[in-house]
Amino acid sequence: MASPGTNQRDPDSRPATALVLPWLLPAGGLGFWFLASAVDLLPSYLLPSPAQVFHAAWAYVFAPVDSAPFAGRFLADAKASLGRVAGGFGLAALLGLPLGLISGRLAAMRLFLDTFLNGLRAVPGIAWLPLALVWFGIGLKTTVFLVAQAAFFPIYLGAAAGARQVNPLFLRAGAMLGLGRARLVCTVLVPAAMPHLVTGLRLGLGIAFAYLVLGELTGVPDGLGAVIMDARLLGRVDIIIMGIIIIAAIGRLCDLGLLWGLKLLKSVRRQ
């Protein structure tokens, strides 16, 4: 039995291991990269050295615009890409969360949606690209569409699984305590399904970045995916690798940001 004043230690917050472990794999990869370019494992036009990539990144982020190809474009590209991700992911969450929650609770809704949605889900995202280009043209709308359709499925499936697996006792308890349908959904169903909702949202955000790049490979003038594609045409492998690393870093930061934002909710923090 716990006594008053006992602190509940979060197992993830042990200081030393929590600081070191996450960086072991990235540091190992970087080390291998240094080694590989030092012994000329691959010619530098295939795998440039870390120093080369670092210089390219420095210019990409800090040099004045137009002082060299790609110089100073970072802020504008990141802004464009993040806007597209936010738009597509937001749209996916807006549709996926309520539809998932409803189909997780109502068998009729599940029967109504499941065949259609699972059929759509089987279509690889890239198969949408030609249609999206015809419908929306090159640019913002196509990318947002691709991101939204890809992020929708994990969000929808997470919400449906969460709603389906809610302990029925919680819903009975809520009804017994005098709550009507709408308040039961907000104060019992959603908090109880929250761990699944969080998983679905995080998977959805991850996939949103994948489809962001796909959407930007099609000839838009700005964005992190566009940079990679332009760099391929100019034979700048250093810029391609830099772009991949920047997307990885921004993707991870957005995941952390999402998690941090969700932790403002009690039902996320406490489960």
Binding site: N167, L169, F170, R172, A173, G174, A175, M176, L177, G178, L179, R183, T187, V188, P191, A192, M194, K266, S267, R270, Q271
Partner: peptide, 27 residues
């Protein structure tokens, strides 16, 4: 169901995302 017929269940049916006081004051 309604609050004039209060139920104490056999299993633990407290809401795990609420504190003891929040559970009691729920709704």
């Amino acid at each position: 169901p309604g609050p004039e017929r209060g139920v104490v269940f056999q299993e633990d049916a407290l809401f795990p995302w609420l504190t003891v006081a929040e559970n009691v004051g729920f709704g």
